[in-house]
């Protein structure tokens, strides 16, 4: 039962992710991405990581994608425009980023298999809010802080890009 549910959620996630990147209409893309987030959250629930599932919905589906939709709706993209301008701008950069991501994901996957954490559910590692809090603010505190600095850099970059004059 659990296995079947996990497979269903996984298949839905992959299918909706593919649909999201192939849509012409950006609003449709955004909605399919939301479907993907939900299937991912469903996968987390099957793995008994309820906290991660709730945060997945709360942050990605509830906040980030709403902002995306907001921006897309304000852009008023016409389909004629998309046909002409919708081509990838920097294909080399895209390929580079994809390869980099695959390498990092592959290393993480193999390390997890080596460490033996890949088998078994998250419940074995205790997926409760307390356990996750302990891991983030204990063992992985440095990584957590570095990530927050990265996000801060992104925010500053966005502000500088949108300001015409910095006075």
């Amino acid at each position: 039962m659990t296995q079947a549910l996990f497979l269903i959620f996984g298949a839905t996630a992959i299918a909706s992710a593919l649909t999201a990147v192939t849509r012409q209409n950006p609003v449709a893309s955004a909605i399919w991405l939301v479907v993907m987030f939900f299937s991912l959250a469903g996968g987390y629930v099957v793995l008994e990581a309820y906290f991660v599932a709730a945060v997945q919905i709360l942050v990605y589906a509830g906040a980030i994608m709403v902002l995306f939709l907001f921006v897309i709706m304000l852009l008023d993209l016409r389909s004629e425009y998309l046909e002409h301008e919708g081509k990838p701008k920097l294909p080399v950069l895209g390929v580079f980023a994809s390869v980099l991501f695959l390498v990092v994901a592959g290393i993480a996957l193999f390390q997890a298999i080596d460490a033996g954490t890949f088998s078994g559910t998250v419940a074995d590692l205790d997926g409760s809010a307390g356990a996750i809090g302990g891991a983030i603010f204990g063992k992985w505190l440095l990584a957590f802080e570095v990530t927050s600095i990265l996000l801060l850099g992104a925010i500053l970059g966005a502000v500088i890009l949108t300001k015409r004059r910095l006075t």
């Binding site: 309820y50 906290f51 709730a54 945060v55 919905i57 709360l58 589906a61 509830g62 906040a63 709403v66 409760s128 809010a129």
Partner: peptide
């Protein structure tokens, strides 16, 4: 009876 009831409420409220 969800252990993360408050988070569930916040997550669903945003939808």
């Amino acid at each position: 009876n969800l252990d993360i009831g408050a988070l569930y409420v916040l997550a669903v409220a945003g939808l």
